[in-house]
Design a binder for these strands. Structure first.
Lengths: 155, 155
DNA sequence: AATGAAATTTATGCCGG
DNA sequence: CCGGCATAAATTTCATT
């Protein structure tokens, strides 16, 4: 799958607002609406575009707490860490999950209603897990940029 | 702005796939297509839905490196930290930016092509900034869940 | 505030260049 | 691989209950 400069310009617009009409994207990049649609379709089929999603206002939903959690595992073998990862990824509170290099093994971004909900989450997913050596929590005071776009390199 | 149970069920479906036809959402939650559209429109206008975006495959775009960066500032006053935050949020490589409680002041998720690009980014945004006391970098080995959906509480 | 139908806009498929 | 046109689908608006 090779992406030309037009694909990249289309993606750069489209990733920020999927409601932009193809005609408007075309007017910006110098292509017809049909050509833009064709390219978007191909980008979906080849999984360059992996999902089209809506960003929600957490506060409006009653989700007042975002936490960044660092988890250190005891058994870091592939089998054990994948089991941990799979269990966490399946939890709806876990918005993001990254396996990282270094001291700590996983970084989670967890979105919940309040501290009580966080306590429940910890009890169920972390304290209860014999493979979790330790974890630390950072409470987010301000989400200055959340689930943002990505910088698309030139070529 | 008050959200009823139907709004929440609609959002739960819609946040994962904005290409779901309103008719299909309606069939699931027990509403007509027009009613679903009307609610989505209101949810957009009231900014419960803050954006409709596309998730892209970073690897396909040549973005091979994701890093989680913790930044400790010297001057943590509102003026100084907001200046730092605004500068970083404006950078396209900075996909996410969170102000957190605790030792460290900001957590960034940065998406770039490679380590060379990261070095440039650090030089421009962190090393160069007199208000950055220190920062640490975690290299993401595996993004198990990226920019995911959020768990919508019952009421 | 929801429904159903009409009107508009947007997307898809096909053909010629 | 593009543009243009025809077709199909989805969204928006409006009248009605």
């Amino acid at each position: 799958m090779t992406l030309d400069a037009l694909d990249r310009r289309i993606l750069d617009l489209y990733q920020r607002d999927t409601r932009l009409p193809a005609e408007q994207i075309g007017a910006t990049v110098g292509l017809s609406a049909a050509a833009v649609q064709r390219r978007l379709k191909r980008l979906r089929e080849t999984r360059v575009i992996t999902a089209e999603t809506a960003q929600l206002d957490c506060a409006a939903l009653g989700l007042g707490l975002t936490a960044i959690v660092h988890v250190d595992l005891i058994d870091e073998s592939a089998r054990a860490s994948h089991a941990f990862r799979d269990r966490l990824v399946a939890r709806p509170e876990v918005q993001q999950c990254y396996g990282v290099a270094g001291n700590v093994d996983y970084v989670l971004i967890v979105v919940l209603a309040d501290l009580a909900a966080y306590e429940t989450f910890c009890a169920q997913c972390l304290l209860h897990d014999a493979n979790v050596r330790s974890f630390t929590t950072q409470v987010v005071l301000e989400a200055a940029k959340r689930g943002g776009a990505v910088a698309i390199p030139a070529s």
